[in-house]
Write a protein that binds this DNA or RNA. Structure first.
Lengths: 242, 242, 242, 242
DNA sequence: AATGAATGAGTGTTCATTCAT
DNA sequence: TATGAATGAACACTCATTCAT
């Protein structure tokens, strides 16, 4: 549905397809992110990708298709880059904190692309839009699973897991969407540690808080900045769940 | 700066200007919301507004200018419609809850326009973009003021007020931005009451919680659905601040 | 179905529409006739018509639509220009001869356009193609009616009127289609008089032949060339019909 | 002049050339016939012929050259397929009737290709167009020779042999060109027998008519349909020629 | 003040043709 | 010989903007 298989003389070599598509989509993400979908021309993408205009139509059905794969690339980055960053982490609370942190750091690396997703998803044809939304939902479920693990193991009190997970997602996205308002006030690290304080800590049980304290002692408040952990505020105390 | 004062044959009668602009901008908001900025043509706006294409250029400098005023209209709706809904409400906790609720209800009535703001703000020329952002910040400060009042009066523990206020904003916006994912799960009323539970209640002091309980007994959980308040979960208890 | 009513800002003034359409279609017929449909660009038509490219799309849906009206113009010329040339002519045999002659003369003035019709009718969308064919059929019926009148009045023996009429049509068209082969051998007048000899005379009854002879004495063999009638060959004699 | 001899890396083996060309031209005739010259792409021809796009340019100079050979193939089919069908037929009247019949049957098998010839000959470069026209003239001469033989042997009265032969050609072509109008009224066989009645019989001498009658008794009115000959109409009687 | 016809630069897309392999 | 990926010029069509009325 996203391929150029319908194109008269579509390319057949799978390796080449992968390479060219990547090449073109990367150029597209860059330009769409900077200038927006409608103001970026196919010719610009071609030039940025170092190919001819015609070539793009051997790998994509139309401009919409380029956008689709560009957005998929971004959305899949979220989905694929969080798990590796959780690897080896056992403790549910630490996993949750890391998931939030990871999401924010990934978004930080894709700030413009994240904004692009918000700007341009509606420009997609409905069927493709649906597919992109499914990508987003999968990432949401990743976050939700972290929440559930905390609740299941008694580190977090009962909450609306779905909605809380969505807050994490929005919190990460906001780093890109509202970067113009946030970057003057917070470093990314600070933003993440504040996020933990606002959106995780209040829902932890005593046991969960204890775990979080331990983690902070080790990891420094999820902040890479030295001393970022010094300002220990009063935090929510939740009774043991169940 | 947004006017068409530079236009050759600009109209001079201020009353007429206001009327025509409103007429055109309302049409623009409708069409931009439905179809997006780039896919809406000036001719469509003219037809929707019941005027000629040429007329638009007597009241706006260019298409960008129409977008600018359209976005301003949306952003100012947030800013202007929240205060009246808080009128007469004295208790800081209730004000905060009502502010969140009001924001969500306003967004609900402007779902597409809210999405439009996210899609199209970057399409504005930088100077106009800045002005739109300032509109948003003013609304943020409205929310922030509500938080501060709660903290000042000891209903809420010390928090990062700026960021918490931003969570409220994002939470309201999310009702529009992620409506496709949320509407199947929550009614608006339920969404709001869950918002209170996730983003307000955890930060309340005991005193604040007591106040919230009282409000809920009166107002029914900020939910219009009968019995929506029945599922009272364990909620955060915060020690008195300071 | 051929209008530009679907166009965003189609023109509304009927007088203007007629004028502009005529202006553009005339340019199109000229260029399509000379260069063919596919090798003629919209820009060329615009230039030839003395208008801008964009204007064409205010009066035509697409290039196909221009072709459609161009072909209709040609086909309707046949249909509309034959009757006036028969006006005042009473005798069925003379009417038939004049019809054939008129058709050939009209085709002579539209040689390239006639070739265009053969080249490009298949390039039309099926529904429009059908409409053009109906135009052609109406002209055929004009010819057929002339044949029928001759038969009914006993000037012509019973024949397959439909097919004979079609021979007249093809004979006239051939003057355009095969002009490259014919123009070296015959003048148009000679061609017409040979047509009468081949496709009318053989089917005349004695009475019909007598009438034809009288007509020729008056009109000079349907040939404007002096002496074109000198080579009187043996011709078909048909018994009285019925 | 039609070859690809000028092509950089032209193929030299004559046998291969013949084979490849045939393969490609057959595919081209099929596609051009169905879709037209301009709407058929070289890539489609390549796929239909089961070769690569590049290969076509080793056997043809350009797309125009493919069209040229495609049209030649069609035109030569007429020229080459008529004589075999006349083989063994001695009587001039029968030969003439068979020639007309054969032409119609050949056209019937090449309906779309015949239309193609009318659509696309003008798309050829002038020099190539001339060559195609010469092919057509050779077929015309085939028909003309049949007419001449009839006249010479006294079966047909004196006529404009050239033009009559052209009528036969047009009659056959019309079966393709106007098939949309004819196929509802006549079977091919009926069409042919009507053609004999309209374009041959009227010009026969008494001797010729007698011969035709005999032929019909044997061959059934040039119609494959049983009983097609039953409806014997009044037909032209010509006095002996000379 | 208002109209809407006219403009023409700009864009997505196609496809004949080339050429490295 | 044969391939098919790559090219880029060319074209249909759109639409923001202008301006005569």
């Amino acid at each position: 549905m996203s391929t150029a298989a319908h194109v008269e003389s579509a390319v057949t070599d799978p390796k080449l397809i992968e390479e060219r598509r990547g090449q073109i989509v990367r150029a597209a993400v860059k330009l769409f992110s900077e200038e927006g979908f409608y103001t970026t021309t196919i010719q610009q993408i071609a030039r940025e990708a170092g190919v001819s205009t015609g070539l793009i139509y051997q790998y994509f059905k139309d401009k919409d298709d380029v956008l689709f794969l560009a957005l998929k690339l971004v959305l899949e980055t979220y989905e694929h880059e969080i798990p590796p960053r959780l690897e080896g982490i056992k403790h549910p609370v630490e996993r949750l904190c890391m998931a939030l942190s990871a999401y924010c750091f990934i978004v930080d690396g894709l700030k413009q692309a994240t904004v692009l997703a918000y700007r341009s998803t509606k420009s997609l044809r409905p069927d493709r839009r649906t597919l992109v939304k499914e990508d987003e939902l999968r990432t949401n479920r990743l976050m939700e699973a972290c929440v559930r693990a905390c609740v299941a193991r008694g580190y977090m009190c009962r909450v609306n897991e779905y909605l809380l997970a969505y807050q994490y997602v929005m919190f990460a996205h906001a780093w890109a969407l509202k970067n113009w308002a946030l970057r003057g006030r917070y470093s990314l690290a600070k933003y993440v540690s504040e996020g933990v304080r606002l959106l995780i800590e209040p829902f932890l049980t005593e046991k969960g808080c204890a775990a979080l304290d331990a983690i902070r002692r080790r990891n420094g408040d999820f902040s890479r900045e030295a001393g970022a952990a010094h300002q220990k505020p009063r935090r929510g105390r939740n009774a043991e769940a169940v």
